[in-house]
Design a protein around this nucleic acid. Sequence first.
DNA 1: CGGAGCCTTGAACGGTTTCAAAAGTAGTGG
DNA 2: CCACTACTTTTGAAACCGTTCAAGGCTCCG
Lengths: 222, 222
Amino acid sequence: MAELCRGCQNRAKNPVCSEDDAINKVQKARNVSSYRAGQTIFYEGGQPLGLYIIRKGLVKLENLSVGGESHILRLMGPGQVLGYRALFAEEPYRANAIAVEDVEICFIPKNVLFDEIVKETPKVAMNLLRQLARDLRLAEEKWVIQVDRDAAERIAEAILFLDHQFKGQPWTRRQIAEWAGTTPETVMRTLAQFEKNGWLEAQGRIYKILDQEKLIEKSQGT
Amino acid sequence: MAELCRGCQNRAKNPVCSEDDAINKVQKARNVSSYRAGQTIFYEGGQPLGLYIIRKGLVKLENLSVGGESHILRLMGPGQVLGYRALFAEEPYRANAIAVEDVEICFIPKNVLFDEIVKETPKVAMNLLRQLARDLRLAEEKWVIQVDRDAAERIAEAILFLDHQFKGQPWTRRQIAEWAGTTPETVMRTLAQFEKNGWLEAQGRIYKILDQEKLIEKSQGT
DNA sequence: CGGAGCCTTGAACGGTTTCAAAAGTAGTGG
DNA sequence: CCACTACTTTTGAAACCGTTCAAGGCTCCG
């Protein structure tokens, strides 16, 4: 049995649960469920029925192009919300949400969220606006980086981001490539170079940053 | 003297003014001003003091990279809002807003918008959430397109977008390049090719689409 | 034990950028 | 109104970065 929302250690990180005025309504309406690593939480094309809040584990939002290549749009960990973009845009999902590890998730149905929580708690609305506005900055930054940084610079950026947001998490070369907008081969060669420079150390799929300064310098175009 | 907000033909297109419950507050608080083509409305690094609504003309949001290259992040026309991302993110502006043509703009101060409009009119909050969520989709799509379409495909996409959103507007090769994430030379050569194919016709800086089907096909990677 | 997917390296190809140069165009200020 | 300046348009040629293809060995899971 899941504990009460009030005691949840993820409350503070989250635009909905963090407000005392809303927490009782969340408690009543929420629905907890689990997914194993690799399982899909929602599919591209599906209609959003509510909002997900990650309680434990890591989720990736992946977009499949016509050629079959996969791109990672966003990564979310404990305390972060999921599935809100399509919900508020009143559009179908445009990406697959896939559990990278075993995951536990709270679900809040759309009508409760809209009619009881957002409408009656302006602070939640402001929090969600802040969240979307910051995601928009990140997405626009990602495009600019894709346009005028070369592959090595983007990979340095990716390593720094992944280490900062999800420290100690293992990543395959392919996942890093799907995040950085390049190929696994290029990630391979570039990371080997970074290791030779003494900027980081790879233990299997876990990377340890040895010289953050140099990586930041590289990521910003020398 | 500016006419009353109720009679403004841009009301419907706009997340704030479209709601009857809010329009009187907007009318009282707004401030109309004008900018000549080429003038800057706000600067990267500045603190947002409120929200802009474009009444007339075209505005570009441009990001300058360290190398001095300029990238167009967003383009806004009459009825669209401007400066809301930084405002709701509680961050400084991350781009310059520059008038592409002569422009007239309504300004609504932050405190009125937050305390009197958004807080008291949940529909405005929902409209703004929808707007941001859709911008986020566009930004993420733009990144994916940048990653796995080649330059010609991106330029086809750009021409279709610009024609759809801002029909009859003149564009320099450089502006198209800054939108499509490539160089003016590549835009030049590609558009010449499109003309030779009979897909479009250039009259100076204004482009007329002759074969939309073929351009759509090209933009999606043949 | 078998297979799927990942890691790793090499070599070649090709699309885009970069550099350069000349002509056209638009806007500014005297 | 003209001249000057700055920017755009246009085309050519060369260099280069990163992808693509290929092949071997690896690990992990069923």
